[in-house]
Design a protein around this nucleic acid. Structure first.
Lengths: 330, 330
DNA sequence: TTGTATGCGTTATCAA
DNA sequence: TTGATAACGCATACAA
């Protein structure tokens, strides 16, 4: 392995001079500069990133924790974040928590060991008090996840607004019994959606709880919701579903059609995410468009700013707007 | 920041002893061992990963290059690889090449700088001669991509077999004019599919080239294929399509239905990947199931073996079997 | 069983 | 403008 020492020997200068040349330090004679670059070329030298990391005590690596890479929303979010971080010279380690606190902890520990410089949390699995401890070791920011007290930047989109928009739309279409499919019940984000949903009680929503469908992640889950739903008499089941993601909506629509229920005439469906699958179903899916890219870029920028300016984190809630896209399913 | 030196001072031993305790070296007295662990606890000490990386000249980080995180096939592949690498104590940096040689080069360069220890290439954008140079700096393995000459492990699945199986199935269903949708034409893998397809010429496939549809990635692309296809007279267009991925197949099916063409009676469709979207369309999509997880795990294991045994890479082609899944679209 | 000394590659400080 | 030297945290060869 060639080191600056080898360059120095061959160029008849000191290590210091080589280092200066490499770092474009102003005080190097033109002659030496030329010579050193020439030898660097000759010996095909590359600076050793491991030594630099050690020297500066930072390795330009950020971890992004997402629930999984299975759902395209998360993979796109991770992709957006990663792209921006790369542009700024950072490496990104994408880690799936699978909604598991222990997996999340593994990454938090990496911060302590200086394996990473900072963390972007796209879901919260441990208690905030637990996570807070790790702020001693590096910055953590929240993205696409909300927390009431967390004393760190929170980048999310307007859950309540989007939910309200979707529900209003369904009400306008004449639906009064609206069901709600979500994934995991203990996420602060999902709770916001639920609360937002519950605020619509006054519109004949007396028995909302009955129409909460948890653990909905996939197309199959959506199908199962319908399979169970149709077991109830027509006047005791929802006439519309607001689902946590478009896959679930697609499953719902597929199963409704299978059972001869017409969408949107007999049943309304709204998805979430504006995934391309919305176009493949029949009817196409009304949904909420989330500006994933903006979320990712803003989050990455926020974290990098903290890192480079080396200033302490502080709470700052940045909200992006979702947008209702009306298609054929409502 | 607490270092082993701090521990040593407080425990009244030398740095060496602390280091030995941390590394479970056998020759440490029970008394000192106890004492050191106690102080470590007291001072909340954590070994510095950056220093260790530097000391050993390795940072336990692998890069995975995939075309993008947009297609779930790639995100699942990256997820599988990453999971196995994590289990073995490695960090994974997932990088999207976007089918761009320059982006690929950026990652290859990281190997040279020792920012990463090895690379898993899930697509090839540069010439092999160019990539080969980087083997001087660390191991590279191929996953889900094929190359005739590459002197490195090649982990893929049986493209030709899967294609043949799909085409045979379509032939058995009475189709003789079969079109072929693929993504990028210059990938070795896609070439294999094409070649495999061309071997079926003898079955009335005289004008295959006409029915090649490149640049098919998304649902919309699938729709467009049908939009263009129906412009031709019925006896001069395919009666079936074999698509490079399930999204494209979903788009094809959707557009065919939109135009009143019955699938599978009037038109057969086979997808690729066995993505969950296959279940959401009407009719459901016949497809090829790829053992993504096996691919990922095997690839990760292969790379790690090279890394830990520090033995030179050699060509080794490992092939997994795809499996035709017959559903309603054929 | 323990401690001392050295080195990993780089950058920064200081003196020349 | 340059070079000698120390320092970053850790592991280890060697001496004791």
């Amino acid at each position: 392995m060639t080191t600056i020492y080898d360059i120095a020997s061959k160029a008849n200068v000191s290590k210091s001079t080589v280092s200066r040349v490499l770092n474009h330090h102003p005080y190097v004679s033109e002659k030496n500069k030329q010579k050193v670059w020439q030898v660097i070329e000759e010996l095909n030298y590359t600076p050793n990133a491991l030594a630099r990391s050690f020297r500066f005590m930072r390795n330009k690596t950020i971890a992004v924790i997402i629930p999984n890479l299975y759902h395209s929303f998360f993979s796109l979010l991770a992709s957006g974040i990663s792209k921006e971080l790369r542009a700024q010279g950072y490496k990104t380690v994408i880690s799936e928590s699978f909604y598991n606190a222990e997996n999340e902890k593994v990454i938090l520990e990496m911060l302590k060991f200086k394996e990473i410089e900072g963390i972007i949390l796209c879901s919260i699995e441990n208690d905030w008090e637990f996570i807070e401890e790790y702020l001693n070791y590096g910055p953590i920011v929240l993205c696409n996840e909300f927390h009431e007290e967390a004393t760190i930047p929170v980048i999310c989109y307007d859950e309540r607004g989007a939910t309200a928009e979707a529900l209003n739309h369904l009400l306008n279409q004449g639906h009064t019994r609206i069901g709600f499919c979500y994934d995991v019940s203990d996420s602060p984000l999902q709770k916001m959606r639920q609360e937002s949903y519950e605020q619509f009680r006054d519109h004949d929503f007396q028995e909302t709880k009955k129409w909460f469908y948890p653990e909905c992640f996939t197309i199959k889950d959506g199908m199962n919701v319908v399979k169970n739903l149709v077991k109830h008499p027509q006047n005791d089941r929802p006439t519309a579903l607001f689902t946590g993601n478009d896959y679930v909506a697609a499953g719902v629509i597929k199963e409704l059609k299978q059972r001869g229920l017409d969408v949107p005439r007999e049943f309304g469906v709204i998805g979430y995410d504006d995934h391309q699958i919305c176009l493949a179903t029949h009817p196409t899916i009304s949904t909420i468009h989330i500006p994933i890219d903006q979320l990712g870029v803003y989050t990455a920028k926020t974290l990098i700013k903290t890192l480079s300016e080396n200033k302490p984190l502080q709470r700052e809630v940045k909200t992006f707007e979702g947008k209702l896209i009306i298609r054929e399913s409502t």
